[in-house]
């Protein structure tokens, strides 16, 4: 255990936690915005897979990481438009439509990978960008300020999402259509347009999450996400639909994962209970949820399609 409490190992664990948390955080923030508008999107994992594949493929073809990020954003927008049309304009059942998107993303990314790539080939990874001065701070400099731009962006989006939801007229519209769309409608707020925009933002962030995942790893393989998108949806509930809470959830999940891996490496967790310990992130997260359980209700109109009739 003493091996764990050395500064280099703790720093490495924190860095690992933040890397692991990045895709979850991006996807969960997007899902938070969508759910606050009353739309549940279970297709996050599918969108992440699609954007992960296409941004991987872009790097493979062009070697341009930023083009890859743009492609991921575009995939997110396209899937957002699709999901928006299905759920907002056709008022389809959100749960099952989201699963449809997931299955589509899983299958299509797999198909494209086999057709276009075949054998996994490594590509360049997101470069580390040191933030001047801050990066040199002992202990916290490395895990916090020697990361990639997408990680910085993910964490910058936490206060930005908070501001968007709580301080802007658009955020007010989002919150009201998520709680009582009839009320918003009666004041001339377009429920359709607001939800569509929220879905678009949510899916774009899911797209970014896919890019962050694949560009951190520098390689793609079928079903790369392994259900990360579903964990991201769960983290929204964990975070009680608040950006800060969602960040806490993503960090906790990442930290427990990183700690478990570190302890396995150090032999603190023996091989014999290794598989059991793999459940720790889920158990700790659920445990924290129970302990911290605040009486926060889901947006009242979550999953409920809106129509005037």
């Amino acid at each position: 255990m003493n091996d764990f409490f050395t500064s280099s190992v703790l720093v490495a664990t924190a860095a690992s936690a933040i890397r692991l948390a990045t895709p979850y955080l991006l996807a969960s923030l997007g899902e938070t915005i969508g759910q606050r508008s009353g739309v549940l999107n279970l297709g996050v994992d599918g969108v992440m897979l699609l954007s992960a594949f296409f941004s991987y493929w872009t790097v493979l073809q062009t070697g341009n990481l930023w083009l890859a990020v743009v492609v991921a954003l575009a995939v997110g927008v396209i899937m957002g438009v699709l999901y928006g049309i299905i759920t907002v304009f056709f008022e389809a059942t959100q749960g099952i439509s989201g699963i449809g998107i997931f299955i589509f993303g899983l299958g299509f990314s797999d198909l494209m990978f086999r057709q276009q790539v075949g054998t996994p080939k490594p590509v360049q990874r997101l470069p580390r960008v040191d933030i001047p001065v801050l990066a040199d701070i002992p202990y916290i400099g490395e895990p916090l300020f020697q990361r990639s731009l997408l990680t910085y962006l993910a964490f910058a989006l936490v206060p930005l999402t908070f501001l968007l939801l709580n301080k802007t007229t658009f955020g007010l519209n989002i919150r009201s259509v998520g709680e009582n769309p009839q009320a918003a409608d009666s004041l001339g707020v377009s429920v359709e347009r607001t939800r569509f925009a929220a879905i678009l933002i949510g899916n774009t962030l899911a797209g970014l999450a896919g890019a962050a995942l694949v560009l951190q790893l520098g390689i793609f393989q079928p079903n790369l996400t392994q259900g990360m998108g579903f964990i991201a949806v769960a983290l929204v509930y964990f975070g009680a639909w608040r950006p800060l809470g969602v960040m806490g959830g993503a960090l906790l999940y990442g930290l427990v994962n990183a700690t478990v891996l570190q302890w396995k490496s150090l032999g603190i967790i023996p091989v014999s209970i290794s598989d059991l310990a793999g459940m720790a992130p889920a158990i700790v997260t659920i445990g924290a949820l129970i302990l911290l359980a605040r009486r926060v209700n889901a947006p009242a109109a979550l999953t409920k399609p809106f129509s005037r009739h």
């Binding site: 007229t169 919150r175 009201s176 709680e179 009582n180 918003a184």
Partner: peptide, 24 residues
């Protein structure tokens, strides 16, 4: 036609143009 989780002011201002766009 009220959003129970919002404040009175938010409920009243909902849907109205703001002088501090895009902020409320």
């Amino acid at each position: 036609m009220l959003v129970p989780t919002l404040t009175v002011a938010e409920n009243v201002a909902l849907g109205m143009p703001s002088t501090r766009r895009p902020l409320t």
